[in-house]
Design a binder for these strands. Structure first.
Lengths: 189, 189
DNA sequence: CCACGTTACGTAACAGTGTTATGCAATACT
DNA sequence: AGTATTGCATAACACTGTTACGTAACGTGG
């Protein structure tokens, strides 16, 4: 009997890359499976063989995004809380479509894909460590709550900026500076 | 010559209401124009006559949502900053699909509708007033930045909670309490 | 070395989507 | 009453994700 042929890894990567670049260029909304397959020089059924469907392909793109995001956070970890915050915003502004998929997709209820459980954890691990270092005597619950507060603050400002929210009267730069300053003050005390 | 017949207002409202309830029930993603029209007892072309298309119908639903949200905020304005924050979260948790459309739809790049310019302003006006009252001597820029910070904090926590983000180790209740407490402390000082 | 069972994936069909051309009944003014 | 004009139902169109089918390529047992 015959042994099953392994999935073609180069085609898989090519599909992933063209999907990612097409999403980054046109937004996840208007990207069709057919256009991805055609741009990758294959047919739609290849996606079904290699991933299972459009949702799984998007999930794979999204997991790649989480990996890149986590790497960016870990690289900034040495600089402390403020560096983490600035790297967070920079990555999001550099990958707006990916960030939207990662954190806003299921919010809008539009994309039928959600990150693999646990995919986001390496991304916030550096933040956890930084908060724990800044609050030496705090309990685990206090630290965890503070992580939620800081993450919420940073994510909120970034996602409002990305949606093109009005920003009536302020600049996102200034608001972000003020938020980071306030976080530093309330944690550094 | 004949005078044009005014648009049928009852059909317009029925379409708006069934669209809103269907969005609240199934999420904005999986709601089709055909299903809305059928549930309203009419045909898809009625939507084109009355609104112009699906995007405009969604925009109308979304503007209704902003009106309801602004009313909720204005009602809570008397209670100060903390009441505003709690009303913000309560409204969002009560209308998750609408909140996602209002603030996360364009983030995900999935919904081709965006709020009418200026529709969000009445919603944050009470927050503006409360921040200005809490910082009597502050400049306009400082007040505006602070509004951005507070809005970002509240929106970030609420939207993370709505996306079903991991919340590894903390409860959203506790994080929200901590955030509101911190806002009160940094503004009340 | 070669047939064979298994797989990768192109072709073509299907159901469902938003949108649009066509046509008819209802309307309000002359 | 007659008529120009509108509201909206019917049906077609282009497009989407998904799936049955068929074919070419492959690794292995003989």
């Amino acid at each position: 009997m015959a042994r099953p042929l392994l999935h073609d890894e180069t085609l898989r990567r090519r599909l992933l890359d063209t999907a990612a670049s097409r999403i980054a260029h046109d937004g996840a909304a208007s990207v069709s499976l057919r256009s991805i397959a055609a741009a990758a020089g294959t047919s739609t059924t290849a996606v079904y063989s290699l991933f299972g469907g459009k949702a799984e392909l998007l999930t794979a793109v999204l997991d790649d995004g989480f990996a890149s995001f986590a790497a960016s956070q870990q690289q900034a970890a040495a600089g402390g809380l403020e560096a983490l915050g600035r790297a967070y915003r920079r990555w999001a502004l550099d990958h707006p479509a990916l960030y939207g998929l990662m954190f806003g997709g299921s919010l809008a209820g539009q994309v039928p894909c959600q990150p693999t459980p646990g995919a986001a954890e390496p991304s916030i691990a550096p933040l956890f460590a930084a908060v724990a270092a800044a609050l030496p005597g705090a309990s685990d619950d206090e630290i965890a709550s503070m992580v939620g507060v800081v993450w919420g603050q940073v994510h909120g400002l970034v996602s409002l900026e990305l949606t093109g929210a009005p920003a009536a009267g302020w600049s996102w730069d200034a608001a972000y500076d003020a938020a980071l300053g306030q976080i530093g003050r309330s944690l550094g005390r």
